[in-house]
Amino acid sequence: MGVRVERTDLAGIGFRDDVITKDGARIGVLTYREGGREVAIFSEDDPDAIAARVTVTAAEADALSELLGQAKTLDFLNGVGGGVAGVYTEHLTLAADSRFIDHELGLTKARTKTGVSIVAIVRGTDVIPSPEPSEVLLSDDILVAVGTRKGLDALAAILSDSRA
């Protein structure tokens, strides 16, 4: 998933980095040698002209990049990417013979034992976001869990404990 970034030098002035998005839009970041920055959105009907530009201070640039960075982290949590900062998302299917079926979610003690959060339960076509500990689990429920690799493996082992 390489992102195309083009750098163009402006001798004596600074340089411009362009990001070309999947849709073909071009976003330019102009860095002046004296330190100013400008974010420019290129025009749709004139590929070389800019349609809008915003001058940002160093602090604003930091804030922007943090915002975009958070969005990126959420993407990873949603399973688009993987492996960032050692946090993973996994969809754990409750086996038909699991001892937790017909019991409350709280009984799994997932958070206490493994540090993993159950952020949602997918039941057929329904999604139960942020389930309460009192939510009763049914057969074929899919638990959307976020945690470390180790924690997720431990939780998978706990959930697969059979009734017997």
Partner: peptide
């Protein structure tokens, strides 16, 4: 406002 334009370099 043409500093970022593509013809500027």
């Amino acid at each position: 406002g043409r500093m970022a334009n593509r013809e500027t370099p």
